[in-house]
């Protein structure tokens, strides 16, 4: 059961297709854990389709187009008889879009050590303005306090952590804006892995700051 969900603006913009790719990645990841939001997305989709159906008539569609479509279909069917459809294996450990972003598996990602208890692996960017990364928080106490500059979306993929505002479990969707500072602590002995999409570099505050910030800056040049 998740307790932290994208709000209705997020879900509406997701369904309408106006989120950036990396934001959509966060919402779709949350959806693979949360059937309540799934139901809302289905409802929003039904609303969208009614607006879609009720559009004022467009310029007529040229009837030659149908013949062209059939021709293309025929061409494609001849070309690849056994076009292998993607295998829709049930959600094993990670949502499919995230697995696609780490073709060599999670262990082979270029994990970088950031202090004692954080590992960060930067994934391919999906849009220019935002960085996509996985954060691994290790058990054994709080990780460094850090500040957010710009927006950061976090979706918990496995394990759980807490901060002053609450407990976050697999599937939880958390949006933090500029100025929020928090000090996450991993619960239990399990490591916690999160998807993180951020507008701007995260800045560490406190004792570790001087040590860590150059690393983050370095991280963001890549």
């Amino acid at each position: 059961m998740n307790h932290h969900h994208p709000d209705s603006q997020w879900l509406t913009e997701y369904v309408a297709g106006t989120l950036s790719d990396s934001q959509a990645l966060c919402v779709s990841t949350h959806l693979s854990y949360c059937s309540d939001c799934g139901a809302e997305v289905a409802e929003l989709g039904a609303v969208g389709s009614v607006v879609f159906e009720n559009q004022p008539p467009s310029a007529p569609v040229d009837q030659k187009l149908f013949a062209q479509i059939m021709q293309k279909i025929e061409g494609r069917e001849m070309q690849s008889q056994d076009q292998s459809e993607p295998v829709h294996s049930p959600l094993v450990t990670m949502p499919p879009a995230i697995r696609k972003l780490m073709p060599d598996g999670m262990d082979n990602l270029p994990w970088k050590k950031l202090g004692k208890r954080i590992r960060i692996a930067t994934l391919d960017r999906l849009d220019e303005e935002r960085e996509v990364a996985l954060h691994k928080l290790m058990p054994g106490g709080a990780v460094a306090n850090h500040d957010h500059h710009g927006q950061e979306i976090t979706v918990v993929l496995c394990g759980s952590f807490s901060d002053q505002d609450g407990v976050y479990r697999a599937g939880d969707f958390i949006v933090r804006d500029t100025g929020d500072t928090h000090r996450p602590t991993v619960n239990n002995d399990e490591e916690c892995i999160c998807l993180s999409v951020s507008d701007a570099p995260v800045k560490f505050t406190g004792v570790l700051a001087r040590l860590l910030n150059p690393l983050v800056a370095y991280q963001h040049k890549h």
Binding site: G17, D21, A24, L25, S28, P96, A97, L101, D124, L126
Partner: peptide, 9 residues
């Protein structure tokens, strides 16, 4: 992009 719209939606 490594992902298509069908991956994300």
């Amino acid at each position: 992009s490594p992902l298509t719209a069908d991956d994300l939606w």
